[in-house]
């Protein structure tokens, strides 16, 4: 009973927030609604006793990814009136694609998963069961190769992103602290002995 109340409130918030993400005009508001929907889904995962995944969702998506998103979105100079134009023009095509996608997804998963009694109920564990530990063991033993390959791909992506934005001409005027610290008095100051001028 209690769990159902919690589930339905989180689910309602999730659906509402997800709808708002695509309907609100202001991109900053949309990003914040996306944050809210991440929160709601993390609540749902907590309800399924997947505490590692739930907290990781908040940590990674809310704490890092969405902060950067907001950062970029706030910097953009977005003209709202331009965004509204063309909605009616694209609606038929977009609507058709959406309906087709929806039907395709429904056909793929319908027979196995729709209906309350179809999925097996989750296995419950005692309070001292650490699913972080279980997840770690599975990742680093059973799935070590997929895990390492994903890590390498991410590393390549990081290096590529840095290489793309790296400018070879030096544009910043930031001083180099190591050079500043290494400066000695002799490099900067020269004392000149000036003879007093003779009068007359």
């Amino acid at each position: 009973m209690f769990e159902q109340v919690v589930f339905y409130s989180f689910a309602a918030v999730l659906v509402l927030a997800a709808t708002m993400v695509i309907t609100v005009r202001n991109p900053v508001h949309a990003a914040l609604f996306l944050v809210l929907s991440f929160f709601a889904s993390s609540g749902l995962w907590l309800l399924m006793e997947a505490e590692f995944l739930a907290i990781a969702l908040v940590l990674v998506y809310v704490g890092a990814v969405m902060v950067l998103f907001l950062f970029v979105v706030m910097m953009l100079d977005i003209n709202l009136t331009v965004l509204r134009e063309g909605f009616a023009r694209y609606l038929p095509v977009a609507g058709m694609v959406a309906v087709l996608m929806f039907i395709a997804i429904g056909m793929v998963i319908e027979h196995e998963h729709f209906g309350l009694e179809k999925p097996a109920s989750a296995v419950t564990h005692a309070a001292d069961y650490s699913n972080t530990r279980e997840l770690g063991l599975a990742l680093y033993t059973q799935y070590i190769w997929p895990f390492e390959i994903a890590a390498v791909i991410l590393l390549v992506a990081i290096i590529a992103a840095i290489a793309l934005t790296l400018r070879h001409t030096r544009q910043t005027k930031a001083p180099k602290p190591e050079k500043q610290v290494a400066v000695r008095r002799q490099d900067r100051v020269r004392l000149i002995k000036v003879d007093a001028e003779r009068q007359g």
Binding site: E51, I55, T132
Partner: peptide
């Protein structure tokens, strides 16, 4: 809770 440190990390990032 078992994931205490993770919880702290997640909340401080908020």
């Amino acid at each position: 809770i078992n994931a205490g440190l993770l919880y702290i990390l997640a909340l401080t990032s908020l």
